[in-house]
Nucleic acid binder design. Structure first.
Lengths: 222, 222
DNA sequence: TGTACATCAGTGAACGCGCGTTCACTGATGTAC
DNA sequence: TGTACATCAGTGAACGCGCGTTCACTGATGTAC
């Protein structure tokens, strides 16, 4: 009645799955501020005590959901890397696009992944860390490949990987916050594409190897 | 007793100020998740109804605090721009440093400025928008100056400004989330500086004007 | 300097609320033989 | 195929809690004359 999912019997055997899906939907509809376990249960068409058979508490549900999202996110980045033909630079560009695309198409999921409480001191979920690292590794692998192909100067790949991560993450965050970007008109699709192109292009040019002479000269040139 | 601030009389005449300061401190100590008006009042050494003489509700206090922070933040960026000698590119670099520095030295304040609820649809605080735009304008002015000096290709300055904003914002966000950066060791000061240098350098190189030939050639070079 | 009065900025009790979580329970399901 | 039993996955009532907010109040402060 109030719930699209109808179970055939008393145990529907997939409440865990339903709870996770419902939780994401709830986080999308309202903010995380108003996210309550009871509302998740309500929307899942189940008593508010039922979730406790699948998650020890509210935070555990959110952590499990975040881990799942991180996995999907990492897979999306990995797919972009693997299915794009061309040089490492072109493929890295595709990964950047996938990053932005994921954030724009799954805003609530994106916010869940990066909500501060999740990564707070001490309480480190090892699974979460693992899937987070796996996502980041796509970037690092891409940088290593680009170094091997001579596009990026050799050295610790972590640094340029974090530069790329920063750029993509910053753009995604600003886009999601919307009003934090004080362009006069709200960002419609028309103004969105040039922005993404500019940002990715800037990143790409920033990462590309320069001759030492050029590197020394440009910043102080007049 | 429980509160360092002692008022001389019944009205201490600066409760508004004290509430704002206390709120920021509370947001720093605990997360925003556990931020309550009552706790703010408690820490301010005042009854829990007192804040309502200064703010219509809890959200208004947070909005006022955020606006204040945005003002300080914008001022910090502006100061970096104005007090740094040299070319526009060098001065923009200083602004980037100021951005990161602010985030690292005022993490709770930084999170307050960019918490999603603040910029949500519809409910737009005009004062907040104004101070946010003022901060962003520093970036835009810097880009315009860099264009005038020939460092950055002419055109709509908003796009490169947002690219710069994205890079700085992304790095700041990732640094604050800490665990979201899956480097093996947690980021100590030693590994922090090279990271900041790399990111800012990447941004700088990305923004600098290239010859058309170089732009066409590099991405596909082999 | 004194007095009357309006206003300001606190207090503390009280409201309703929905939350997270626990608990004893019970019906459904799976398994052994 | 049937039966006995253990386990699983729900239910619904109940708990205590602290929250945001309202309210009537009151003491302190400022102002006019």
């Amino acid at each position: 009645m109030t719930n699209a999912i109808r179970r055939d019997g008393y145990h529907h055997g997939q409440l865990r799955r339903v709870l996770l899906d419902t939780a994401l939907e709830l986080a999308s509809t309202r903010g995380l501020q108003e996210f309550t376990l009871r509302e998740v249960a309500r929307r899942a068409g189940v008593s508010h005590a039922a979730p406790y058979h699948h998650f020890p508490d509210k935070e555990a549900l959110l952590a499990a959901l975040s881990a799942e999202i991180f996995t999907d996110f990492g897979a999306a980045l990995r797919t972009a890397w693997e299915t794009t033909p061309g040089t490492a630079i072109v493929r890295l560009d595709a990964v950047g696009r996938a990053y932005i695309h994921f954030a724009l198409t799954h805003p609530a999921a994106f916010r869940l992944m990066f909500r501060p409480e999740l990564h707070m001191a001490g309480q480190e979920d090892p699974e979460l860390r693992e899937v987070g690292e796996r996502a980041f590794r796509v970037l690092v692998d891409g940088i290593v490949a680009a170094q091997a192909e001579g596009f990026i100067a050799p050295g610790d790949p972590i640094l340029p990987a974090l530069a790329a991560w920063s750029m993509a993450h910053g753009l995604a965050s600003l886009l999601l916050e919307g009003a934090a970007i004080p362009s006069h008109a709200p960002l419609d699709d028309l103004s969105l594409n040039p922005l993404i192109e500019t940002v990715l292009k800037t990143l790409q040019q920033g990462l590309l190897t320069r001759t030492p002479a050029a590197q020394e000269e440009l910043p102080t040139a007049r």
